[in-house]
Simulated scan of single mutants.
Amino acid sequence: MSERVAVYGTGTIGSGQATLSIGNGFETVVLGHSKGGQERCWQTISQNWDDLIAAGLATTHAKGAALNRLTITDDPAALAECTFVFEAVAENPTVKRDVYQTIRRNTAAGTVIASTTSSLEADVLAGLCEDPAHFLVAHPFQPVHLQPLVEVVPCTATADEAMAQAKALLVMLHRQVVILRKSVPGFLVNRFAQALFRESLDLLEKGVATAEDIDRAVKYAMGMRYASIGLLEYFDAVGFDLEKTIAENTYPSLCNTREVQTIVKKGIRSGCTGQKAGKGLYSWDEESLADFHARLLKPFLPSVMEWSARE
């Protein structure tokens, strides 16, 4: 394959991106500064393959072949032959600027840098990067190696050929590509998610429903519905007249706060910040975490059948 892929960053996003690219036959370099991070990255990628094997979607032979395509290093000179670099480091502009400088020093002219940022706008990051014509955002979703969507966002200077190169690579990685015409905070999916989170937390604070019932409503209505049809397709199916009536009845009472809600602030103060803390809106132990992990992967496993068999 003509592309040689690199991933700068050894965290969850970087590990998932590397799992995906080696699974699709690409020689892949992962760059990470700490030995601990490099080791965790290797273990995560290996576990990702073990999950596929357990689901009957890959073989140990395919795993071995994929891992042979992987290089994890702290030496930026390993980027020399890479033509496309996914940046997957902390959401800190200073950190990202240093990474972009390292990439540009160690790659050929025209190498595309694609940030996996979930919140920083493309033009802000492009301002930190030499050669913004070959910079863009390619925002994936966790688990990166399983969930197929990637939001591609150009900066104002991104060249057409860089966009075409990014889309072509992502299609070869069996991704569904959404291209934004302009950058907005949170892009598309995180804007949708924040609207749902805001409303859900407001309903919790008002005592309208429990977390369990809110999640049940999402899983067994919205989640099932929008797994096969689009949100705006459904709007058309309902029709403008009825949707207008529903909007008139609900818009006045929807949450419109512009501040982080009290339930979140209290959780942070008390240390009840979610799964890693063992308690957030739910309580989490080993059994519930394992169940969550299995349910998280299940909908996406069929999407890897084509690439996980590569050897």
Score class of each variant (00 low, 15 high):
residue 204 L to G: 05
residue 191 R to Y: 06
residue 195 A to Q: 00
residue 255 C to D: 10
residue 205 E to T: 15
residue 251 Y to N: 01
residue 247 A to Y: 06
residue 193 A to H: 05
residue 235 F to S: 02
residue 253 S to C: 07
residue 233 E to Y: 15
residue 229 I to E: 00
residue 252 P to I: 04
residue 208 V to C: 14
residue 203 L to T: 03
residue 237 A to P: 05
residue 208 V to P: 09
residue 207 G to E: 13
residue 191 R to F: 05
residue 234 Y to L: 11
residue 250 T to N: 03
residue 250 T to P: 05
residue 210 T to L: 07
residue 237 A to S: 09
residue 223 G to I: 03
residue 216 R to I: 08
residue 214 I to S: 04
residue 200 S to M: 04
residue 204 L to F: 13
residue 234 Y to S: 13
residue 231 L to P: 12
residue 209 A to G: 15
residue 239 G to Q: 14
residue 256 N to G: 08
residue 232 L to T: 05
residue 226 Y to I: 02
residue 196 L to T: 04
residue 217 A to D: 07
residue 255 C to G: 12
residue 257 T to K: 00
residue 205 E to L: 08
residue 196 L to P: 08
residue 206 K to P: 09
residue 203 L to K: 06
residue 236 D to N: 11
residue 260 V to E: 02
residue 225 R to Y: 12
residue 200 S to H: 02
residue 195 A to M: 00
residue 197 F to P: 02
residue 206 K to G: 13
residue 191 R to Q: 07
residue 247 A to N: 09
residue 243 E to V: 12
residue 207 G to Q: 14
residue 228 S to G: 13
residue 247 A to K: 07
residue 236 D to A: 13
residue 232 L to S: 00
residue 257 T to Q: 02
residue 208 V to H: 02
residue 254 L to Q: 02
residue 249 N to P: 09
residue 229 I to P: 04
residue 204 L to D: 07
residue 249 N to W: 12
residue 238 V to P: 01
residue 205 E to R: 11
residue 196 L to S: 04
residue 198 R to G: 07
residue 226 Y to H: 11
residue 234 Y to M: 11
residue 260 V to T: 01
residue 225 R to E: 12
residue 201 L to V: 14
residue 235 F to D: 03
residue 215 D to E: 15
residue 258 R to Q: 13
